[in-house]
């Protein structure tokens, strides 16, 4: 199987869907002539032309709202946010309009829009550019939320997201863009709402998603080699819909849980999972549910310190040992 980057996998997903469905349009700041601020859309303008690949002004409320309106008439806009952090200036369009239009119309209107872009810290860009809004987004019934960790998942999930008739929030990661992974040449889809066990184990379940999956896999290797601990890693891939059955199956197998997330801890995805696990698998637990989150403060700029604010393999290792104690 070819090894390609996460960035290329996303690009291939978009190219395939652009070819498949003439109503798919890629829009965003610098997506066309500039080839994408992070080169995700590189070459698409050349291949598909300016009707399909559209540079927008820096005007998120305007162009995201425009995409919502166009989607009501059957266009399938795939809107790039240069950073998911910029969702704040389009909040009303995303979480009042896209999220609610089906409901408020009594099911008469669909909004098949995808909003995608990176949502992560770790690149020393400070608090305004480092938001991870998956919990905020998932708090709004009506939208779906996807956070892929590998090139394979990124491609299969993005293709599913583009075909979805509901608004899908697709959260990527600038640090993952260059990560390589095996991606088949033949077409495939990864359904939304299906978790993936990235590593099998028996002593501890790490429930995680996004870049934290990679940190957790590194920590798991160390735990196996140096501590003789077998860790299972469940990659949620999708936050809403949520594959809680796979989480429960892992909890029932290992009886110990660590949730790792690049989220501030208050009302985070991990907080939601903790509640669900204790409620639905209380008797399976041999100890309290542990959580490793981002250190609870705005994203610090200072490069060496930001590494310690976020989950990283050493922090995961330490948290795992605490969860096993």
């Amino acid at each position: 199987m070819p090894l390609i980057t996460y960035r290329e996998a996303l690009r291939h997903a978009m190219a395939e869907e652009l070819t498949r469905d003439e109503n798919v349009v890629i829009m965003g700041e610098e997506v066309a002539q500039f080839n994408g601020a992070y080169k995700v859309t590189e070459g698409l303008l050349e291949k598909f032309g300016p009707k399909r690949i559209v540079d927008t002004p820096i005007s998120e409320a305007g162009f995201i709202g425009m995409g919502v309106g166009a989607s009501m008439l059957g266009i399938r806009p795939v809107m790039e946010l240069m950073f998911w952090s910029f969702y704040s200036v389009a909040f009303d369009q995303i979480l009042n309009n896209a999220a609610n239009i089906r409901y408020m119309s009594g099911g008469l209107i669909n909004c098949p829009i995808v909003i995608r872009g990176p949502a992560n810290g770790g690149t020393n860009v400070g608090a305004t550019h480092s938001h991870t809004p998956e919990n905020v987004l998932a708090n709004h019934p009506g939208v779906k939320v996807v956070v892929p960790s590998t090139p394979y998942d990124a491609k299969g999930l993005l293709k599913s997201a583009i075909r979805d008739n509901d608004p899908v929030m697709f959260l990527e990661n600038t640090i993952l863009y260059g990560e390589k992974g095996e991606v088949p040449e033949e077409e495939y889809l990864v359904p939304l709402g299906k978790a993936d066990v990235k590593r099998e184990g028996t002593d501890l379940s790490i429930i995680t998603y996004g870049r934290s999956v990679l940190h957790s896999l590194k920590a798991a290797e160390i735990l196996e080699k140096e501590h003789d601990v077998s860790v299972e890693i469940v990659d949620l891939r999708s936050i809403r819909p949520l594959d809680f059955d796979t989480v429960l199956a892992s909890v029932k197998k290992t009886h110990r849980v660590l949730i790792v997330e690049e989220q501030k801890p208050f009302a985070s995805v991990g907080a939601q999972l903790s509640d669900m696990i204790q409620r639905e698998a209380f008797d399976e637990l041999d100890g309290p549910i542990h959580r490793l989150s981002t250190v609870d403060a705005p994203a610090i700029y200072s490069p060496p310190v930001e590494i310690e604010q976020l989950p990283n393999p050493q922090r995961v290792l330490k948290a795992a040992l605490e969860a096993l104690a």
């Binding site: 709202g65 309106g69 166009a70 009501m72 008439l73 266009i75 009042n96």
Partner: peptide, 16 residues
């Protein structure tokens, strides 16, 4: 808040 949506209706008309 509806004005960008209305602009999107026009965008869809032109696109189609």
């Amino acid at each position: 808040g509806q004005i960008p949506l209305g602009t999107g209706l026009a965008y869809a008309l032109k696109y189609k």
